[in-house]
Simulated assay, not measured.
Amino acid sequence: MAPIAIQETVDVAPLKKRADAESATEETGEGIRLSARSGTYTKQTSGAAPTYIQANLIILPSKYASDFRILCRRNPVPCPLLAESAAVGSWDALRSWIPGVEGQKIAANVDLRHDCPRYMVYENGHLKTSHCLNVENEWTEDHVCFVIGCSFSFETALAAAGLMPAHTAQARNVSMYRTSLPLCPAGVFKNSTYIVSMRPYRRRDVEKVRDITRPYVATHGEPIDWGWEAVTRLGIKDISRPDYGEAPVNADGTNLVQGDGIGDEELVPVFWGCGVTPQEAVQRASLEGTVFGHAPGYMLVLDVRDWDILQA
């Protein structure tokens, strides 16, 4: 039985820069944000701006901010906290939670109301608006934004190793599922469970996938479980029907089904913690007032690069 790999702390080891840190990319985090801000970039962001860190957003009334920080500290795998609004009501500046990285470096030119391609809006714990282009009208001087690491950030490293995720190859949104794995509670955030993202790989490649993603602690790190048995362990009802994103496919675009391959060649689901988890926690907490965040798969792309957050 494969173990569930859950880290107990959110502490990050000293960071080091990769040798190719100055290599250029066609897209930049700022370029994606500006395009989203103007309404010209409206698609999901998997594969966008390689080496630039992608992030989930959750934006709350300030009275819930302390409980949310504690939730992230107690649940660093699905909720790895990278930054938050520099002050209550601030939408254009961030305070960093990444050791050695200042908020200005995380995202210098940022408008948290516009810079995700799509947003979700919740009112008193219920979904009010889905996949809207911005939340400028909903933002108030009492809101605080939290920026949480996203597993899209390590997909470039997987692709470079010849392990491109199937959803990226097919230009689809990653499959995301509710689980029965409980979160550690924090204040008003109780009775919540993990959301996980899934990428299928041949069984022979799982250890390599684990090794590649393990240093990305700030963006969920290595898988928490893998194999067809994991579907049952995690309490996922039907892998063909994700709760968020699109139905899972193989690299050739065919549907993911059990029994594809034998032994080490078997194609198996591999599950990571997912930053949609806090949106689920918000819904279950039935928070008063307006809460909003990114639409699943439509991330905030930052200026900080992967070598700035890799754990040594």
Rank of each mutant, 00 (worst) to 15 (best):
T179P: 05
A108H: 11
S175G: 14
L181Q: 10
S153A: 07
L127G: 08
E141Y: 02
N134R: 09
I106C: 03
V135A: 10
V144F: 11
K105N: 09
E136H: 10
V110T: 05
P182Q: 06
P99D: 08
L112N: 03
T156V: 07
N109G: 00
P117V: 05
I106G: 01
G100P: 08
L181T: 12
H131G: 07
T156W: 15
K190R: 15
G103P: 07
E155N: 09
D115V: 01
M176W: 10
I195L: 07
D142P: 01
G149C: 08
H114G: 00
R113M: 07
H131Q: 11
C145P: 04
S153R: 05
P165L: 08
H131P: 00
S151P: 01
G162M: 10
Y177N: 05
I148Y: 07
S130R: 13
A159T: 12
C150W: 10
C150N: 10
H131M: 12
V147D: 06
M164G: 09
G149L: 07
T168W: 13
E141S: 14
L158I: 02
C116Q: 03
A107L: 05
A108E: 13
A159Q: 12
S175E: 12
F146G: 03
F152L: 06
S192R: 00
G149I: 07
G162L: 07
F154H: 13
F146N: 05
